[in-house]
Nucleic acid binder design. Structure first.
Length: 486
RNA sequence: GCUCCAGUAGUGUAGCCAGGCCAAGCAUAAGAGGCUCUCAAUCUCUCGACUCGGGUUCAAAUCCCGACUGGAGCACCA
């Protein structure tokens, strides 16, 4: 044994390391890395965001360097003002350490400066075409009438737009790429458009806002990003952004696009969530039906679960489905040991056990560790209990069950009778609560409620616990808990 | 329709770049059993996959081509 260890120790270590470092190495790492998290402040973060948070954080932790949290708020029509704060809290909760915090709306002058440079270089133009005409031209690989106007005129127009002097049609600034590019999505693309909506941060100071492809390209350079990892939905955007890097002769970050993960059975659209909350359909951003980090956290999902799940999913370039099954299983690993056991009877039926003696039920808080203590109840003779309808329906005459850690009962066709305390025979074990136990509710992820009774000793507990034979829950108050998972 | 990306068990992944050690590893689910006075935890076993067809090669999950299938994008969201 020892000999084997001595001889093959190195190999064993290598194997182990491979398991831990599930994520592949990044390409072209020279010293430290600079990476970024770039959410838009349309609402708090959700399950989908947690992936890019964790992945970026993992790499910065592996190589060392900076992780920049950059709020992409260049569309005032899509900003939820509280999100600036909420996002930072979400990120911190996941133990993602960002080292810099940047808000794009504070960087407008930088974008304007770069835009003017591009105009001067002949790589951008002000376009006043109607939307439909512009599209038609692009599809036909045809230059629009504004594309080759003199530089001076363009610069003048740019100033006019920025200063709000130009109110005729809604002009845009367009980046020249290649009108004959085989991919129509990459042909001349729009970098700025006019939005008159006041911005929560800058008010009416600006009206000509950059689109994501422009501000992202500029900032990725200005902040000296070395690696950008993001979803494959950005493949075309990367192509567009490369033009900016090319025109300025900037060094291009290493891009990596991972496959999209389809999270079914979850509400992720911030617009849908916000509307639902405003309409009173959801109680808030932490409504159990939403897949926000806030909601999942409140239900009892652990930050470690998010990290483990996303590391395990890796950077596969294949699109796939999110697996609640696996996610829940991982979460169970983190919570099981800390979760005391209690009885909750839902869909209750009151039954009297005829001929039952006075006894004491002593049930462990956590069966694998008796040291943690017990919940103890004394029951009367002919005691009445709440049992789950599901457990006692469809029973044949003469069948026996065992009330867990108490005694056996037998169905005689009409009523229930005491059936001794013999545990040598295996029979179905069910849980129970005494009559007069407190009422209790569990709110399930679909928003419906399971109503019933909780055992008395469980009433004042809080946090994650397991209702035996029911599920794990996060107990919020004396009267209700949120359903977590089996 | 056009551009691009990809196809490993029910699900999530490892392996592919540098072909052989892959009669394909792990997790989860399912089935059986052990332990247990929970349907949890824990332990053992079982089940189950390289999309298809060609090609290159002594050798293909891995390289090339095609088909099929799935996905992303297609312009003033990010």
């Amino acid at each position: 044994m020892d000999l084997a260890k001595e001889k093959y120790g190195d190999i064993l270590v290598v194997e182990k390391k491979r398991e831990e470092h599930h994520l592949p190495d990044l390409k072209n790492v020279r010293g430290k890395v600079v990476m970024r998290l770039a959410p838009s402040p349309s609402g708090p973060l959700h399950l989908g965001h947690s992936r890019m948070l964790i992945l970026n954080d993992e790499y910065v932790k592996r190589y060392g360097g900076d992780l920049i949290l950059r709020i992409e708020d260049t569309n005032p029509n899509n900003i939820y003002p509280q999100a600036y704060e909420m996002i930072q809290e979400d990120v911190r909760w996941l133990d993602v350490n960002f080292t810099k915090f940047i808000i794009q709306s504070e960087r407008m002058e930088i974008y304007y400066g770069r835009a003017k440079e591009l105009i001067e270089m002949g790589k951008a133009y002000i376009c006043k075409c109607k939307v439909e005409d512009f599209k038609k031209d692009l599809i036909a690989s045809r230059a629009c009438p504004h594309r080759d106007l003199p530089t001076n005129l363009m610069l003048e127009q740019f100033e006019e737009i920025v200063n709000g002097e130009d109110r005729d049609i809604s002009p845009v600034l367009v980046i020249k790429t290649d009108l004959h590019h085989p991919n129509p999505a990459v042909r001349d693309w729009i970098a700025f458009r006019v939005i008159e909506t006041p911005h929560p941060h800058t008010g009416r100071k600006y009206r000509f806002y950059p689109l994501m492809n422009f501000s992202v390209a500029i900032d990725d350079h200005e902040l000296r990003l070395t690696h950008v990892i993001r979803g494959m939905d950005h493949l075309n955007n990367t192509e567009r952004q490369r033009y900016i890097f090319k025109y300025f002769r900037w060094e291009v970050p290493e891009y990596f696009h991972y496959g999209l993960i389809n999270i079914g059975d979850a509400i992720l659209s911030t617009t849908t969530m916000r509307k639902g909350i405003e309409a009173g359909e959801f109680v808030g951003w932490d409504d159990v039906r939403l897949a926000t980090l806030l909601a999942l956290r409140r239900r009892g999902y652990q930050k470690e679960t998010f990290r483990k799940y996303w590391i395990d999913s890796g950077l596969n370039d294949v699109n796939s489905d999110f697996s609640w099954e696996i996610f829940n299983s991982m979460n169970r690993q983190f919570i099981d040991h800390g979760a005391d056991r209690y009885f909750f009877i839902h869909n209750p039926v009151l039954v009297k056990i005829e001929g039952s003696p006075e006894s004491i039920g002593k049930i462990p808080l956590y069966p694998n560790e008796p040291d943690r203590g017990f919940r103890q109840y004394s029951v009367e003779s002919d005691q009445e209990f709440y049992l789950q309808k599901l457990d006692i329906k469809d029973l044949k005459k003469g069948e026996t069950l065992r009330l867990k850690d108490l005694y056996n009962i037998q169905f005689n066709g009409e009523q229930w009778e005491y059936a001794g305390n013999d545990t040598s025979i295996r029979r179905k074990i069910i849980h129970w609560v005494k009559k007069d136990s407190p009422e209790f509710e569990v709110i399930k992820p679909d928003g419906t409620k399971d109503h019933g009774f909780i055992e008395e000793r469980g009433v004042h507990t809080r946090g994650i616990l397991q209702f035996e034979r029911y599920s794990f829950v996060n107990k919020i108050s004396d009267s209700y808990a949120l359903y977590l998972h089996k």
